[in-house]
Design a binder for these strands. Sequence first.
DNA 1: AAAAAAT
Length: 527
Amino acid sequence: MAALIGKSWADEVDEDDTPAHDEGAAAAEDDDGPPPGFETPKLAGTASARSNSSNSTAAAAAAAAADAVAAELAGVKVSQEPSLDDPDLSIKSQQLVEAEDDGGPGEVKTVTQGDSFYTSAKSFEELGLSQELLQGLYTEMKFERPSRIQAQTLPMILTPPYRSLIAQAHNGSGKTTCFTLGMLARVDPKLQATQALCVCPTRELVVQNQMVLERMGKFTGISCMSTASADYATTRRTRITDQVVIGTHGKLRDWMQKRVLDVRNVAILVFDEADEMLKQDGFADDTVRMIKQLRTANPAIQILLFSATFNERVKRFATKILPDANQVFVPKEELSLDVIKQYRVNCPSGADKVKVLKDMIFPLCEKLGQTIIFVRTRDTARSLHEVMAADGHKCTSIRGGGGESGMDKTARDNVVKEFRDGTTKILIATDVLSRGFDVTQVTLVINFDVPVERDFRTPAFETYLHRIGRSGRFGRKGAAFNLVTGETERRVIDEIATYFKHDIPEVPYDDEERFVDVLRKAGLTDG
DNA sequence: AAAAAAT
């Protein structure tokens, strides 16, 4: 089945129809009027209490807090101990319908709200877009027709009454185009105020999404500002008038507090990598606060949540926050792309992992397009880079900013730029790049450390899927090697294989012929 | 015991 789904959307799209898949955001601007205050949501209040209590109590408290916040946002009354099965919390008007039969398998679950009925878009013309926007799609983006997720969600996004949407689609299937187009289409080019806002988890995604939005909107005259592109000195004091604003949480909140960013005209709010943005130990507090604030300014605001992954917990949270949203979900067994061949390499020791890189991966890299090597910590990113460089292997590395071991913004920008240029072929990265980063030439992903949660033993299923999804962009070939040392890593990979119902066969760590063979079979090399 | 993100 996974094979069918992977093939279906890939087959639908022409080879050169390569939707760079990113997002943009919109910024708006306005004058006075007290911006809605930044009340601390209940969730934030319980966060500190949580850390003092036992684990199980903490989890229960966190879950209850999350429910309370969600219910409040949804305008739903909830009892002291909300049950997820409480019929009062269920969405009454929703209908479960099979996905439109647009040539793909009907495994995608779509839920539409109220009386709304949407017809899958066979072409961009059907969407009522401006000539300028169509020109951007065809001339600049070189798109021919909507991919499956685009055909399915664009009508939902662009048809009044502009309902909110929670949408899941495979890595590299063109999600960025969905929400970028959504933002551009909903902006009034004549109104010089921020009308669309897009929030992303990393600086790199902000930059990428801005690039895509500016290309797609090239002929519309719509202006875009991002927290990465902003002239720091200027935006501190000058009110933003750009129609689209894209950014990360911290700086956006800063701008709103300083009233540099006026949200009163924002009609559409997008969260890229939405499940990450709603993670309880991550951005959930910030995201909830942001939604609350923008809803105060505009109760009818359209909110879009896009991601390749939504685990059950986040899915529940998301549907509670946006109870009236249309929904598009993909079963997790269908999510692991078959175009990406996945292997494990059992390495007796950590030193053997380095040996595999030196003996197998780096020597073959010229034939392989580009490679990203994922590691767990910033320190590993730095030291592995040093070790490889000391041995004469050319590569670069990137990790997040801030703190003692953080990397400078300018340096990060440069590393990404060189990698996009193709100047560098191999990039060592932390999970700062695990999501959304779109470089078509990436065909190989190495998990130098297998992805685990903070406890070091629970598999990080979503992270795994996002990491390997950096290859195989839009139906292209891809392969992933998991370097495995020790019982824990072995079990983690086993569990990941089971979870996604996808085999991860072994390749002997010292068998060069097998490596070459496997890469050839994956379609990465000719010889 | 991590990564990401504001100053």
